[in-house]
Simulated scan of single mutants.
Amino acid sequence: MLRTDWTLDEVKAIYYQPVLELVAQASEVHRQHQTTGEVQVCTLLSVKTGGCPEDCAYCPQAARYHTGVQAHKLLPDAEVLAAAQRAKESGSTRFCMGAAWREVRDNRDFDRVLNMVSQVNDLGLEVCATLGMVNDYQAEKLKEAGLYAYNHNLDTSEENYSNIITTRTYDDRLNTLENVRKAGLSVCSGGIIGLGETDEDRVKMLHTLATLPAHPESVPVNALVPVQGTPLAEQPRVSVWEMLRMIGTARILMPNTMVRLSAGRQEMPVTEQALCFLAGANSIFSGEKLLTTPNPDFDADKEMFALLGLKPRQSFKNHVPEGATVLAKTAAVEA
């Protein structure tokens, strides 16, 4: 039975138990609610890079930090479509487009993004976007264009949020998630660990996600990739045991959710990634970059899948959204 009424004490009890016991429990929940050994491969492309006015302390795309990231305007439609086609041919079933904007504005660039969404949807891929804050009208326009999911991470706990970002509020984040949900889009929202937060902050963030009116369909668990020039450049690497606590707890709290092993995977050997899959992670991002940070490429991931006996998850499995292409509907039926 799915619950959205978890108490903070219940989440703490799950999170703080011995890590091997947590992994065992999470693995059992995963087996009951998901197809084990099945992992969705996603690709994330930065369609507009750098120059963001926000001050997110972890982000190399903030204009105020000197990180060496080369800013570029919105990519040409043909370039985005070609990248989506390459991702599909390499095994990805979900294609996410990220733009370094504070918020979506109703202008020509947004119209171009809507066109990109429509074209990528026609390839039969789950189309995701992360464009900053959106209002209800913009979320509905994205849905009409064929968008399947919208990503907007909480990043950390509400209590720790102002230590990481001061240019928007936690309520801004939650309002965007509400607008996305109302539009009928799949909600993708998770966080980053390794920002200097406490275990208590991690527990509170998971509690917030698990007690939303409905669980996010997708929860990315990111390990900070420190970038020189950002305020968090000297943060130590997160350990696999910390990732396991996050992934395992997320899996137990939100059994039907896709738990995504996201940023930081480049630094994780296959043995560590295997433990994360055992704890309930069932999605990865593949491709040379995750927006602007290094990420394992498709060939390395194919080798890992073969070694661990994993199989790729089909797009639109168990859910065919309105407006999905015939190709996508066929894939969902076959899955």
Rank of each mutant, 00 (worst) to 15 (best):
Q266R: 09
G146N: 03
D111L: 02
I284M: 04
V29R: 10
L212C: 10
T330S: 00
R86H: 12
M304N: 04
A71T: 05
H66W: 01
T293Y: 08
G37C: 08
L174K: 03
A324D: 00
R86N: 13
G68T: 06
E242C: 10
Q119N: 06
E217Q: 14
S239P: 00
N295D: 13
P216M: 14
S283A: 15
F277L: 01
S27F: 06
P236I: 07
A71W: 05
A332K: 05
K12C: 05
T156A: 13
S162D: 04
H152A: 00
K73I: 01
E140H: 09
D122V: 05
P76A: 15
E21T: 14
V238A: 13
N135Y: 03
K88E: 05
Q119P: 03
L81S: 06
R64K: 05
R251N: 11
P220Q: 14
N163P: 07
E21C: 11
P226H: 04
Q138A: 10
V326P: 01
G51K: 12
E197A: 14
N153G: 06
S286Q: 11
D172N: 15
K12Q: 09
H66I: 04
E200T: 05
V41P: 10
P220L: 13
V117F: 07
P255Q: 15
S27Y: 07
A83Q: 02
D172V: 12
C42R: 12
R260D: 07
E103G: 03
Y58T: 01
L253P: 00
C128M: 12
D77S: 15
G309W: 12
M133P: 04
G280N: 06
A306G: 12
